[in-house]
Simulated assay, not measured.
Amino acid sequence: MTTAHTLPPIIIVEDSDEDFDTVRDAVRKAGITVEVRRATTGGECLDLLRGSVAIRPAVVLMDLNTPGVDGREALESIKTDPALKSFPVVVFSTSANPRDVTFCYAAGANAYHVKPLRYPEHVQLVTDLIGYWLGRVVLPVQGVV
């Protein structure tokens, strides 16, 4: 397992304050100390990834239905950009539409989860996701080709 001081940040793409707060609660519950960066649109996420001080995240937790550049567009941009495509992108959406699921996997999503409606289940699912991606998965080392 990676130690807290070496963990790359996670990016949460979420326009709902309530859902973002739930994710932050879940990160705390997971017991993993990690920087959480928020983008409220897919465009803001791309700015974080491509900016002059670009973030190299452990994982991007992507809501699909955001204003402006939505999660679908951001997912496609990430997974077709050679500099970004190795970053894990986990879709976390209220949509259970099979078209959305199929689209996201075809575009390169690493996983797709439907947000539970009830707070306890929502927190537990995000806690499990964070624990998995930051505590169990071996992530690529930045700068190693």
Score class of each variant (00 low, 15 high):
T3G: 02
T3C: 09
A4W: 07
H5E: 13
P8I: 03
I10G: 00
I11E: 03
I12W: 09
I12R: 08
S16Y: 08
F20T: 13
D21V: 02
D21K: 05
T22K: 08
T22F: 06
R24A: 15
D25Q: 13
V27P: 01
V27K: 04
R28V: 06
K29F: 10
A30G: 07
V34Y: 11
V34Q: 04
V34R: 07
R38Q: 13
R38S: 04
T40R: 10
T40I: 11
T41W: 01
E44D: 13
C45H: 01
C45A: 15
D47G: 00
D47N: 05
L49R: 12
R50F: 00
R50C: 05
V53D: 11
I55G: 00
I55C: 12
R56L: 06
P57H: 07
V59R: 06
D63P: 06
D63R: 05
N65W: 07
T66E: 05
P67S: 01
G71T: 10
E76L: 12
E76T: 15
S77G: 00
I78K: 07
K79S: 10
P82F: 09
K85Q: 15
K85V: 10
F87G: 02
P88H: 13
P88C: 08
V90E: 05
V90C: 05
V91E: 06
V91L: 11
F92I: 00
F92S: 00
S93C: 09
S93Y: 04
S95Y: 03
P98Y: 08
P98M: 12
R99P: 00
V101P: 11
A106C: 01
A107M: 09
G108Y: 12
A109S: 09
A111L: 05
A111I: 00
Y112L: 07
H113R: 11
K115G: 06
R118L: 15
Y119M: 13
E121L: 11
V123D: 06
Q124T: 02
L125W: 09
D128T: 05
L129R: 03
I130M: 08
G131Q: 10
Y132T: 14
Y132C: 12
Y132H: 14
W133A: 11
W133I: 13
L134G: 10
V137T: 08
P140E: 04
G143N: 09
V144Y: 03
V145E: 00
